[in-house]
């Protein structure tokens, strides 16, 4: 983690404040300086999931482009409060950031309001598919059902009890689309398998999620999966019991328990961010929708490092990936 100060943006902030910057569209970017990107995120950059996936992508893009001299990157995390996020976006745009990424589906209305005031700044928001018809707004989303389907295929081949457990906080957003794809992948491989689902209603209650996983295991499940928030509780329970496997999504979760994690669907925003930067530099400030897919390498299946996957399962997974890529397999019914 970076803790040292960068004086330039701070001074800029102070100057902007002193100048009474109240929503003017005065971009102060210098054409020769680094490309400047700001990200506004709802949760912490260490959430092992959504915000972290974007944070890491930004770090990767920065390294690839040649460090801070080529890409300057600022972020605001913990912006659950939408007006705060809107203020942050306006702030960054006023400071002359070239690309402001609103990394939360709840930020749509704010983007819609801030973007027209800063026609020289690109805004991006996700996950969604709506650019509001504005020339300086990008949208991005992830086809989570694709990796869900692939995970489902593997899970169906690996389960011996023919019972699979799904855990998560609330069945909405990409948690839902991932699960929908997973169910479909299981059913396409072995329709006789039972899938049980539990939802705990809380994004942070790990104790309850652990018991949800224990419940699944007691009900006979030998494979668990679910949205990223439920991973830690499930892996804890699976470790205690032994012989129970886990499939992850959003980020590579193998580090938590290498021997239990068969595979994770990984969101890789690097391509999307690089595309948006390239478009901006070429003069296209928005108006396009990016979707992370297996076919554009935005979604990847990361196989577990400590679990030895049987060769036939691995090849079935690869066949499913290929099928989804060429369109012969539809991950959703």
């Amino acid at each position: 983690m970076r803790k040292h100060l960068r004086t330039a943006p701070v001074l800029l902030t102070l100057l902007a404040l002193l100048a009474g910057a109240c929503g003017g569209a005065t971009a102060t970017t210098s054409p020769s300086g680094p490309f400047r990107v700001a990200v506004v995120m709802p949760s912490a950059t260490t959430d092992m999931a959504y915000s972290q996936s974007m944070f890491q992508a930004m770090k990767a893009v920065q390294a690839e482009m040649g460090g801070e001299s080529a890409l300057e990157f600022a972020w605001s995390e913990g912006m659950f409060n939408v007006p705060d996020a809107a203020a942050a976006m306006r702030d960054y745009a006023t400071q002359g950031y070239d690309l402001v990424i609103a990394h939360g589906s709840q930020y749509g209305a704010s983007v819609q309001e801030v973007a027209p005031d800063f026609p020289d700044t690109s805004f991006a928001w996700g996950t969604n598919v709506d650019t509001f018809g504005m020339p300086n707004v990008f949208a991005y989303t992830a086809a989570a059902e694709e990796g869900g389907y692939v995970n489902g295929v593997m899970a169906a081949m690996l389960t011996q009890s023919k019972i699979i457990g799904i855990t998560g906080p609330v069945e909405v957003g990409d948690a839902k689309t991932y699960i929908d794809g997973f169910r479909n992948g299981v059913a396409a491989t072995d329709p006789s398998i039972t899938i049980n689902a539990t939802w705990t209603g809380s994004f942070s209650d790990v104790a309850l999620m652990t018991e949800a996983a224990n419940t699944h295991i007691a009900a006979g499940a030998d494979i668990l999966t679910g949205s990223s928030q439920s991973v830690v509780g499930s892996i804890g329970a699976a470790k205690d019991k032994g012989g129970v496997l886990w499939f992850g999504t959003q980020a590579d979760q193998a580090t938590l328990a290498p021997e239990l994690v068969v595979a994770s669907q990984v969101y890789d925003w690097v391509g999307v961010v690089k595309d948006m930067i390239a478009k901006h530099q070429a003069g296209t400030l928005g108006g396009e929708v990016f979707t992370l897919r297996l076919s554009n390498d935005g979604l990847k299946i990361a196989y577990g490092t400590g679990y030895s996957l049987p060769a036939d399962v691995r090849s079935a997974a690869e066949a499913a990936i290929a099928g989804i890529k060429d369109g012969s397999i539809k991950p959703l019914p």
């Binding site: 970076r2 100060l5 960068r6 943006p9 701070v10 902030t13 102070l14 912490a44 600022a74 972020w75 605001s76 995390e77 913990g78 912006m79 705060d84 203020a87 942050a88 702030d91 960054y92």
Partner: peptide
């Protein structure tokens, strides 16, 4: 105070938990 604390987070890039 809440607004200023957010500004502070952006200005010196400290974790939001400090707020």
């Amino acid at each position: 105070l809440l607004v200023g604390a957010d500004k502070m987070q952006r200005a010196v890039q400290v974790p939001s938990a400090l707020v």
